[in-house]
Structure formats: structure tokens, C-alpha cells
């Protein structure tokens, strides 16, 4: 979720709620301190209230998971839920710190507080990444595709490469793209590129080096991407390699070489996109399971705290 100047009007009310909630709870707590012999904890009236509100917020935060599971659920847009998730989650931090009476307490409450802080910290980390990485994706991967369909579109790249080489060299090199599955009716999305649009006039003579280069260098790279120790993994060395290839081919085949270079460039972008996607979402590996643990232990805490006021 982006929080920037453009989207700020959508966040403003939530931010005001967060500030008012924080300041209001602080004021109430400070007033209660004047009448207490110790930092008011969870059993004090403000502490108990903060605990109730904080607990309800935590439960609400978990409902976001349910909201995403049931996308047809007509209870506000996913964006609205996410905004509420962010700002209420932030509000729960001061509330539950005040609820704790500024103490970690025993084993359970210490565990709860550590979990809670980790959940909040991972959430803030995730929010930060989600504000930075999408911009990097736009800048660095203009050929961005859908991450979940990455395997499928890589197969399509191979198919396009195979067809191009076959049309120029006169025969399919190894039918490399056949196994990748050319799924049904194609849907055309994304930026245009030469491999998909160029239509070579026909077979070009003396293009054996091209077919060999495609088979030995390009196909493995398109399959494995930058994980492969290939000169094509680096834009600089790839440029040199393709220049050398052109020098060994007739001028009529140079456009085909450029089209292959485009395919390799696209493969590099998708690898980059995959890495950015990984960092864009891997914080959830911390945020989500710790949230689950937090809710379970919070329930235990509520029961035992009520038992031993």
C-alpha cells in the first residue's frame, strides 16, 4: 500500500484517528498515574480499557486475512481494509504498551510483548518495502509480467525464440519451447518487442552460427535466467557477446540478433522482478505466523489475567 502525497487524502482520516487515539490514551494514562502508586497496569481502568481496545484491534487485524481469502465479501474494498489494518495496527502499539504498565511482566506477557513488537516491526518493514520496491520495479523492469505466471511466460519466450530461429535458419533448433506449454488462447499483455512483431522475409543463408549460439547460449539462459553462470546474465557482457555474433553473421540477420538480445533482456528483467517480488512479500513470513501466535497467546493471556486479577 502506497502512502505518498497522492494517496494521502485516503490516509488522512486514519492518521488523525491514530494521532488522537495515541494522544488521548497517553493523556488518560498520565492522569491515572497521578492517582496511582505505581505505573498503572492492565488491571487499572485505563490499562484494562487499552487492553480491550488493543485486543479487539489485533483480532480485527487478523480478519484482513479472512477478507483476502473471501474476495467477493462486500464489506469495503481491499484497499480500505488495508488502510484500516495499517493505521489501527499502529494505534495498537501505544495502547498495548500502556496496557502493559511499561513492564514486560512474566514469561507469557514478555513473550506476548516480544511477539507484538516483532509483528508491528515486521509490518512497518513490509509497509516500507511496499512503498519503495514498486517504484524500483517500474524503473528497473519495464517488461514486468505477472509474478505468479512467470514460469508460463518464460516458456512463451522460448517459443518465440524457437519460432524466430526456425524462420531464419530454416529449421527448429530443438523445439525448446514445446515443453513449456503454449497455453490455450493467448492473451497479449505488456510492452511490445521485436521478437513478437518482426516477420523475417525468409530463411537467411550462413546463419549456422546464429542457430548454434541460440541453442548453446540463449536457450539455457532463457530457461534458467540469471541464476545460470552465463555471459548473458550481465547486460554489459551480453551486449559484447551479441556484437561479436553480429560480426559473424550477414547483415540481414542482425535484426534477428537484436530480437534475441531483447528476449535475454526481458529474461533479466523478470529475474530482477522476481527478486523484488521476493523482498516485497517475504516479510509476511515473519508478520503472519507471529500474528497467529500472538492471537493464540493473547487468548491465553486474557483468560489467565481475568483469573488472577
Amino acid at each position: 500500500m502506497l502512502i505518498d502525497r497522492e494517496s494521502w487524502p485516503l490516509h488522512r482520516n486514519w492518521a488523525i484517528l491514530f494521532v488522537l487515539g495515541t494522544v488521548g490514551s497517553l493523556v488518560w494514562y498520565i492522569v491515572a498515574c497521578f492517582d496511582a502508586v505505581d505505573w498503572p497496569g492492565g488491571s487499572s481502568l485505563p490499562g484494562f480499557t487499552f487492553g480491550i481496545v488493543g485486543g479487539v484491534i489485533i483480532l480485527f487485524e487478523m480478519v484482513l486475512w479472512l477478507r483476502r481469502k473471501v474476495r467477493t465479501w462486500r464489506v469495503g474494498s481491499a484497499q480500505s481494509w488495508l488502510r484500516a489494518h495499517i493505521w489501527l495496527g499502529l494505534l495498537s502499539l501505544p495502547l498495548l504498551i500502556l496496557h502493559s504498565g511499561l513492564r514486560f511482566g512474566g514469561t507469557l506477557t514478555t513473550t506476548l510483548m516480544i511477539l507484538f513488537i516483532l509483528v508491528i516491526a515486521s509490518g512497518i518493514w513490509g509497509l516500507t518495502l511496499q512503498n519503495l520496491l514498486p517504484r524500483m520495479k517500474v524503473d528497473e523492469t519495464p517488461g514486468e509480467t505477472t509474478y505468479v505466471a512467470m514460469e508460463q511466460v518464460v516458456g512463451q519466450l522460448l517459443t518465440e525464440g524457437d519460432e524466430l530461429i526456425a524462420s531464419v535458419c530454416g529449421a527448429k533448433p530443438d523445439a525448446a519451447g514445446e515443453e513449456q506449454g503454449d497455453a490455450g488462447v493467448p492473451v497479449i499483455v505488456g510492452v511490445g518487442r521485436r521478437s513478437a512483431t518482426m516477420r523475417p522475409a525468409g530463411v537467411i543463408a550462413e546463419t549456422e552460427p546464429l542457430a548454434e549460439f541460440y541453442r548453446e547460449q540463449v536457450v539455457p539462459f532463457l530457461r534458467e535466467g540469471t541464476a545460470l553462470d552465463s555471459p548473458l546474465a550481465n547486460p554489459g557482457t551480453a551486449g559484447v557477446v551479441f556484437q561479436n555474433l553480429k560480426a559473424r553473421l550477414p547483415a540481414a540477420a542482425h535484426d534477428v540478433v537484436d530480437a534475441l538480445a531483447d528476449l535475454c533482456d526481458l529474461r533479466r528483467q523478470w529475474d530482477r522482478e522476481a527478486r523484488l517480488q521476493f523482498w516485497l512479500h517475504n516479510w509476511l513470513w515473519v508478520h503472519y505466523p507471529l500474528s497467529v501466535a500472538l492471537v493464540v497467546l493473547m487468548i491465553v493471556h486474557v483468560v489467565t489475567a481475568l483469573k488472577y486479577w
Partner: peptide, 12 residues
């Protein structure tokens, strides 16, 4: 151009 399956959004 890349061609995506219509139901790709359902994949996890």
C-alpha cells in the same frame, strides 16, 4: 507479446 492464462490470478 507475453500471453497469460485468464485464471492466473487464482494461482498462489
Amino acid at each position: 507479446m507475453p500471453r497469460l492464462a485468464l485464471d492466473c490470478h487464482k494461482q498462489v
